[in-house]
C-alpha cells in the first residue's frame, strides 16, 4: 500500500467536512448579498434552494459513492453466492437482502446471476430476495434521501426496502414456483472454470472506489442538477398544499395509483428523487411518495424483459405481484403512522 495516498485522501476528507459545514451560510451570502436577491421573494427562495442544494447533494454523492465503492471491493457475486449456497430459507432471505445492498450488481447481469445462484443451490426465494434488494436499496437513492430529507426518511427507505426484499422473497419461496422456470435453466451446467477471486491490496481498492466515483457521479450529475432545478422552481413557486388533495393521506386510492404509475416508469434514483421532494413539500403523503419511488426504482419493465428469458410468465407475474403488494403495504403503513 502506498502510504502517500493516505496523506492525500485524509486532508481531502477534512477539507470536505469543512466546506460542507459552511455551505449553508455561504449559499445565503451568495444569494442574498452577492446577487443580491430578497429572501422574501419567490425568486430569492428558489435561487437560495438551488445554490445550497446542488453542491450539498453532489458532495454527499461523491463521498458516499466513494465509500460504497470501497466496501464493494470486499464483495463479489461469486463470494455472495458461496455465502448463500448452504443457507436455509428464512436466514437466507435476510442475508440475501443485506448482501444485495453491498454486492456490485448491474441489472444487465440479472440473468447470469440468477442462473449462477440457482445452479449453486441457492433457493429460489432467497435468489429473489437478492434480486429485489439489489436495485431497490441503492446508494444513490440513500444519499439523495439523506441529503434532501434527513436521516429519518433515508433510514425508513433502507429498512422498508430490506423488509420488502426479505418478505417478498420468502413468500415467493413458499409458493413453490420452480416449475415455472424455463426448462433449459435447470439443465444449464456451469463450467468449472469459475473466475478466481482477485487478490486486491488497499491501493487497488482505492483505485476501484475512485473509478466508481468517476463512473457513477459522471453519469448522474446532470440528472441531479436538473432535478434540483425542478425542485427549486416548485419550492419557490407552487403553492403549499397543492398536492394534498391528489396524493394526500385522505385519498386512499392514491397509494395503488402511485404504484400503478410507478411500475412502467423507469428512471434512476437520481432522476426521480428531486421530483419526490417536490411532491412531498407540497403536501403529498410520505407513504404514497415512498410507494411511488419504490415502484419506479425497484420494479422496472426492462429488468422484467431480461428476466423473461429464464422465468415463465406466471413466475414473472408472481414476482411483480408480490413485490407490488409489499410496496402497497409499506405505503399504507406510513400513511397510517405519520
Amino acid at each position: 500500500m502506498k502510504l502517500r495516498r493516505w496523506f492525500v485522501l485524509l486532508p481531502l476528507l477534512v477539507v470536505w467536512f469543512f466546506i460542507y459545514r459552511f455551505l449553508k451560510p455561504f449559499s445565503e451570502w451568495l444569494t442574498f448579498s452577492v446577487l443580491p436577491l430578497d429572501p422574501a421573494t419567490r425568486l430569492g427562495q428558489a435561487v437560495a434552494f438551488f445554490v445550497y442544494d446542488t453542491p450539498k447533494v453532489l458532495m454527499l454523492l461523491v463521498l458516499v459513492v466513494f465509500g460504497v465503492g470501497l466496501i464493494r471491493t470486499f464483495f463479489t457475486p461469486e463470494r455472495t453466492r458461496r455465502t448463500l449456497a448452504g443457507k436455509r430459507e428464512t436466514v437466507g432471505n435476510v442475508m440475501a437482502a443485506l448482501l444485495g445492498v453491498v454486492t456490485p450488481f448491474c441489472s444487465c447481469s440479472a440473468v447470469p446471476l440468477f442462473l449462477g445462484f440457482v445452479e449453486a443451490g441457492v433457493p429460489l426465494g432467497v435468489t429473489f430476495s437478492f434480486l429485489i434488494s439489489a436495485p431497490m436499496v441503492n446508494e444513490v437513492a440513500l444519499v439523495l434521501l439523506f441529503g434532501l430529507f434527513g436521516w429519518k426518511v433515508a433510514g425508513l427507505y433502507l429498512a422498508t426496502g430490506l423488509a420488502i426484499a426479505i418478505g417478498a422473497g420468502w413468500v415467493l419461496g413458499r409458493l413453490r414456483l420452480e416449475k415455472h422456470l424455463e426448462p433449459w435453466v435447470l439443465e444449464t451446467r456451469q463450467g468449472a472454470v469459475a473466475a478466481e477471486d482477485e487478490r486486491l491490496n488497499w491501493n487497488d481498492r482505492l483505485d476501484r472506489a475512485q473509478q466508481a466515483v468517476r463512473e457513477i457521479v459522471g453519469k448522474v450529475w446532470l440528472y441531479v442538477i436538473a432535478g434540483i432545478a425542478v425542485g427549486a422552481g416548485i419550492h419557490g413557486y407552487v403553492p403549499d398544499g397543492l398536492m394534498a388533495g391528489i396524493m394526500g393521506k385522505q385519498a386512499w386510492w392514491s397509494v395503488p395509483a402511485a404504484v400503478l404509475v410507478g411500475v412502467p416508469m423507469y428512471s434512476n434514483a437520481a432522476g426521480i428523487i428531486p421530483v419526490v421532494q417536490a411532491l412531498l413539500e407540497k403536501g403529498a403523503a410520505l407513504g404514497t411518495v415512498l410507494a411511488f419511488m419504490m415502484a419506479v426504482i425497484g420494479l422496472s419493465l426492462p429488468e422484467m424483459v431480461i428476466l423473461r428469458r429464464v422465468l415463465k410468465m406466471p413466475l414473472i407475474l408472481a414476482f411483480v405481484g408480490v413485490v407490488a403488494f409489499g410496496i402497497l403495504a409499506v405505503g399504507y403503513l406510513f400513511n397510517l403512522v405519520f
Partner: peptide, 19 residues
C-alpha cells in the same frame, strides 16, 4: 447466455484471454 455460463461467470461484462 449459455456460453457465458460455461465460463463460470456470473456478472458481465467479463474478459477472457486464451480461455
Amino acid at each position: 447466455i449459455r456460453e457465458i455460463m460455461a465460463f463460470g461467470v456470473m456478472s458481465t461484462p467479463a474478459l477472457v484471454v486464451d480461455g
